[in-house]
Structure formats: C-alpha cells, structure tokens
Computed example of a mutant assay.
Amino acid sequence: MIAAVTRHMNDDHLDDSLLIARAFGYPDATESTMVGLDANAGIWRVTDAAGVHDLRVEWPGAPISDRPQIRRQVVELYKLACEKLGVPARDEHEPAADPHGAHGHGAHGHGADNPHAANPHAANPNAGDAGESDGPKPFSRVVRESSWSDHSSSEGASFMENIMRGIASKQDYVDLVAQHFFMYEALEEAGEQLAGNPAYEALHPEALLRLGTLKVDLEHLLGADWRNEIRPVPATAAYAARIREVAAEEWVAGIIAHHYTRYLGDLSGGQIIAKRVARQHGFDGPGIEFYDFEALGDLKAFKETYRDGLDALGETLDADEQQRMVDEVRAAYAFNTAVFVDLAAQKSAA
C-alpha cells in the first residue's frame, strides 16, 4: 500500500508535494518527493539550496489505517499548505496546482477512491461519478484512476524504491537500464504504427524515442560490447512479447496503452530517478541520457497534449473497447511489477 501511494504521488502529484514541503518546513524547496508514510504522518524527501532533507508532516486528522484515509489526509495536507502559502486550493477533483499558484490543465485529480479501481471490469468505465458533473469523465482520467492500484508492487517494490531513494547499487541501476532496452526495442517498433497515423502522430514525436539514448547509456555503463552483456529477465521477455503481439494485431488502442504506461512514467517519476541516480553515481549525460527529454520541450505541456490525445481516442471507442484498453494498461503495470520482482530475485541469487 505504501509503495502504491508514494508512486502515485510521485507520478501525478509532484506539484502538490512541493507545496507541502514549502508550507511545512522548507519554504525554498525546489524538489519534493514522497518516500514513505505511517499511521501518523507522511514523509517527503526535500531538496533546497542547503541540500537534501527528510520532512515528516503529521496527518491533520486522526491516525490512518487504510488507503481511503491516506487519500483524504493527503488532500487535507495539500489544502492546509495552500492556505499557509496563500495559494488558491483547487477542488480535489480538479487538475493538480502549479506550486507558484497557477492551475494546470492535465488530468491530475486525486482518484484513490475511484470505484473502477476496485471494479476494473465495470460496464462503462467512462461514466461520471455521483457528486461530480453529469458529463462523462475524460478518458485520460478514467485510464489513470482505473490503474491507480496497479502502480504498486509487492515484493519487488523495494528494488525500485531503493533506486529512487539513492541507496541501490550501481549494478542495480545497470540491470534496470538493460531491461529498458528490451522493453523499448519492442515498444518503439510498435510505435511506428502511431507515427504513421495522422490521428496519433502527436503522441509519438521523434524526440520521445528512447532506444538511441539507451544505447548511449549502456555503452557508457558496460562498454562497447554491451549488447552481448545484457539479457532480459523472464518478465521483461514476456513484456516485450506482449507488446509485439498487440502490434501484430494492429490494435492501436493497445499500443497506446503500453505507450502511455511507459512514456508518461518516464516524463514523471522517471525524472526523479534521473536526479537520484545522477547524484548518487555522478552521472552527467551518458548513463542517464534515457531520462533527458530536453528536445521534447515543455514536459508539462507535452503531458497535457498527450492526455488530450487520450481523451480524443476515448471518444472513438465504445464502452467495451474502452475497458479493453484499460485492462491492457493494467496488464502493462503488472508486467512492470513482475520485472522488478525478477530483478530483485536475480539480485538475491547473485
């Protein structure tokens, strides 16, 4: 549960975490990521000009015991932070706020209590919730909320968490980069179908492609003979095989399900990984080129454009096809979790 909450916050709510850090201890914070929680408080790792700090902020209500309570307490902390900083607080179902007071336009609502996460096979995943507007939810929000619980992993969670916390070994990071190569080799082959389709080419600009950067990183990490040094773990091989299966079917929504899961993660939590790894291992350029999307321009703007594209796609799909795509997104998260489990097992066996 903790891994699910921190991953969700770090993927979708970095601006909220930055507001909390600035309001509750570090007014000049430039970066804030959630790294843990317990019954009484949330824990953030905060960066400012003085260095890196751990910040513990007590929950505003009673001690928590389940996920819905966590969600409510995080929302309350966000609102209290806005009040302390004089920033207008959004409604909890609106997009995440910019830490300087502007409101974003991406689909960043807090969705931990979404009924479709508990029932992913609901007949109409795009139906509006009671108490919200009468219109349908944007499809990008449906996809994100329906897969929220899948952002976590169980026994494999520690492998990725250790990398994000800057306590994993360099070999752990090298092993992760190697698995990325096999994933993106399959994904970018599949993505050629999007690049050739005018309706979706905006989702797949050349600057998004990662295979070339992975080759640079692997040569830096392993040397010129890197291709003979890497092997996919079983879960990675299965993951790549599924992407190729979807591509062979020419199922565009299925390709986008995998495309969305990987690239939007790279543009969100992946940026945190790059900073942690660079700081820990002294990389600057080669070694973390995979996470450098400077050529893409404004990352927030691109993510908003991407979500707009998902919304447009959703309007072309009937309820059954929407659900089929949601299921594929959830399958992609499951593959990702399985890769972490395999990497953890490989490390234990070494």
Rank of each mutant, 00 (worst) to 15 (best):
G135S: 12
G106I: 06
N126W: 05
A102K: 10
L85P: 04
S153N: 04
G135I: 05
G131K: 02
E132P: 05
A112E: 15
G101Y: 04
A107Q: 11
A127E: 09
H116R: 15
S153A: 12
G128Y: 01
A81K: 04
F139L: 02
E155T: 08
R90S: 15
P95I: 11
K84W: 03
R144Q: 09
H105L: 13
S149E: 11
K137D: 10
S149K: 05
D113M: 10
F139Y: 06
F139M: 01
E83N: 08
G101W: 02
E92V: 11
S152D: 06
S152T: 01
H110C: 03
P136H: 03
A89Q: 01
P99L: 10
D113Y: 08
A97F: 02
N124D: 15
A102F: 13
P115H: 03
N124R: 13
G109V: 03
D91M: 13
S153K: 01
H93A: 15
G101F: 01
A118Y: 12
D129Q: 04
D129S: 09
P120W: 00
A122L: 14
V87R: 01
P115C: 01
D98W: 11
G111L: 08
R144N: 05
N119K: 10
S133E: 07
D129L: 13
E83D: 15
D150P: 02
V142A: 06
R141V: 07
H151P: 02
H151V: 14
N124T: 09
A107K: 07
E132M: 13
S147P: 00
N119M: 06
R144K: 15
P95E: 07
H100E: 15
H151K: 06
E132H: 14
S133K: 08
D129M: 07
H116K: 11
G106K: 03
H105N: 14
C82F: 13
P99C: 07
P88S: 07
S152G: 13
K137F: 04
H151Y: 07
D129Y: 10
D150M: 12
D98M: 09
V87L: 12
A107G: 04
D129E: 12
A127W: 05
D113L: 10
G86R: 06
E83T: 12
A123M: 09
S153M: 05
D98C: 13
N124A: 14
D91Y: 09
P120H: 04
H100P: 03
P95N: 04
P138I: 02
A127K: 06
E155P: 02
A118V: 12
P120G: 11
P136W: 01
P120I: 03
F139I: 01
D150K: 06
D113W: 11
S152V: 03
V143E: 00
D134K: 12
G109S: 13
P120N: 07
E94N: 11
D98R: 10
E155Y: 13
N114L: 12
S140R: 00
H121D: 15
A96Y: 02
G86W: 04
N119P: 02
W148M: 05
H116M: 14
S149G: 15
C82Q: 08
R144S: 11
G86H: 04
N119I: 05
D113S: 12
K137T: 06
P125N: 08
R90I: 11
P99K: 06
P120C: 05
K137L: 14
E83K: 11
G128H: 06
K84Y: 02
D150L: 10
K137A: 14
P138K: 00
R144C: 05
H108D: 09
P120T: 05
A127I: 09
P138W: 00
A97W: 05
N126F: 03
L85F: 08
